[in-house]
Design a protein around this nucleic acid. Structure first.
Lengths: 142, 142
DNA sequence: TTTTATTGTAACCAAAGTCGTTACAATAGA
DNA sequence: TCTATTGTAACGACTTTGGTTACAATAAAA
């Protein structure tokens, strides 16, 4: 099982927007061209990014532009925006046996442990900004 | 999207085994009772744990016992054993547009970033032993 | 040897999520 | 008014998950 590519596609799109000359809009068709997918897939993701305030989308002779400073926009913001993991990353069995005290205690102990692992993942995402991604794209060596 | 409960069920089962008086076997029926699921689900998971050398399973008047020292068995071992994430945790779009250099570079930069996030998660899992889980179950306060 | 409890595994199902696609109304700039 | 674009609904094919039934293989015990 993998985390939906919605997240990586969103970062891809935001990177293109951040790299774009200021003020110029990119259409879902052009963005889809770079990712190589269907424009509707891109529009669905743009809808989520818009809802989270990361981009502004214009209809008609339209397109999208970035609404946040790439230096302060972290991958955790994107991760949250596209709603790729709702709540807990690790699923635990929903209905533990209520008659087994041992079982209940294990679930509780496990919850804490798994939450720490999830937090480690999110800390790493929070430590990476869109500006850093753009920089490493421009200079593949670094 | 969440990581399969196979992983948390496996840790649950191993915790029960570690807490069990030495030498005594637990059947899939009893283990299923604590987790509150079907014995076949447990047996499927035990099969993976056995394959990875974490447990020994006996047929007939059978059952399962732990084969590794809880103090050195980490949650990363379990995570790997149940094969809950094959390869990369984050999926990236499989077919980037080969004609878009920008797109290709973004994919490469993204791969590195996402691999770091995954590594952070796995480091945390590797830092937690089964013995620690057992201890926190026995003493819920700590 | 026979009996018996248990494992190992195949087969099937319903539910959910993903990703791509077609279609079309709504929008806003020229 | 014309036109390019967005927003969204609807659908399909695919995959994974978790539960269930069924039954042969196994090995301990009687």
């Amino acid at each position: 099982m993998q985390i939906s590519s919605r997240f990586s596609v969103a970062v891809h799109v935001l990177t293109l927007l951040a790299d774009n000359p200021a003020g110029e809009l990119l259409t879902s068709d052009r963005l889809a061209g770079s990712v190589n997918t269907n424009p509707v897939v891109i529009r669905r993701i743009l809808g989520q990014l818009k809802k989270a305030g990361l981009v502004e989308v214009r209809a008609a002779a339209g397109g999208t532009y970035l609404r946040r400073d790439p230096a302060t926009l972290t991958l955790l913001d994107v991760y949250r925006a596209v709603d790729v993991v709702e709540g807990a990353l690790f699923s635990v069995h929903e209905h533990p046996n209520p008659h087994c005290a041992m079982g209940r205690h294990i679930q509780a102990a496990l919850d804490g442990t798994l939450a720490r692992a999830q937090a480690a993942l999110e800390r790493e995402l929070a430590a990476t900004t869109l500006a850093q991604v753009v920089a490493s794209v421009r200079e593949p060596v670094g």
